[in-house]
Design a protein around this nucleic acid. Sequence first.
DNA 1: TCCTTAGTTCAAAATATGTTGAACTATTGA
DNA 2: TCAATAGTTCAACATATTTTGAACTAAGGA
Lengths: 113, 113
Amino acid sequence: MSLPHPNLDQISLANVLSVLGDQTRLAIVGYLACNEGLAVSCGQFSEFGSKTNLSYHLAKLREAGITHTEVAGTSRLISLRRADLDSRFPGLLDSIITAAQELPALERLRDEA
Amino acid sequence: MSLPHPNLDQISLANVLSVLGDQTRLAIVGYLACNEGLAVSCGQFSEFGSKTNLSYHLAKLREAGITHTEVAGTSRLISLRRADLDSRFPGLLDSIITAAQELPALERLRDEA
DNA sequence: TCCTTAGTTCAAAATATGTTGAACTATTGA
DNA sequence: TCAATAGTTCAACATATTTTGAACTAAGGA
């Protein structure tokens, strides 16, 4: 099963930027970037907000075309739409991810590990 | 004379992205990028909104550290803080400017010329 | 079957953002 | 000095976004 995702030409620059212009969502994207290839589910973002709130932010990321969400039983497997974003906006995601690594929320997470 | 501008370490990624996550401001930045080196004043953005509204958007860009505004008589000379942004967020501005060139507002402006 | 786990949906409230017109300041040119 | 030009500020309004808790669905495991 699969949730609605925009296709390439429906992904708009202004929308991507405004969705990423938020600490919580930037932290989520930074975390996803550090864990590419691994299966990441909503629960892993619990440091970043309440369950309800994360559901809201994750929907925004998906609807903007930034993440892909796959339904797997009671969980959702979330990943970056890296290839899609790279082809639509070359270099954008890389520069954002690099800059996002110094975000307090992500540094805190790394310190704990 | 000079208006208040944030210094390098006061420029935050989330703020820059959220300020650029708006059609009008993206168009302004795209225009500035096409006219680097030239003196650009507020009046030149009149296609993008009313005088009052532009004053608001230009203040947001300045306060986020994206533009520099220099007071010159009754005008303001506006420019991108390219070097500052490049050093703080390498590659970010370039990728945004490249992607912003296909924005309707900017294409319209080029068609008229 | 019953309970737990994972996440969603909804409506309400709080907060932030964008847009407007009227009144304003400051500089410049006649 | 006077009027015009360039842009700002303010308050008001409209709209959008974020956050919350309570109630929900749907899948698994005991």
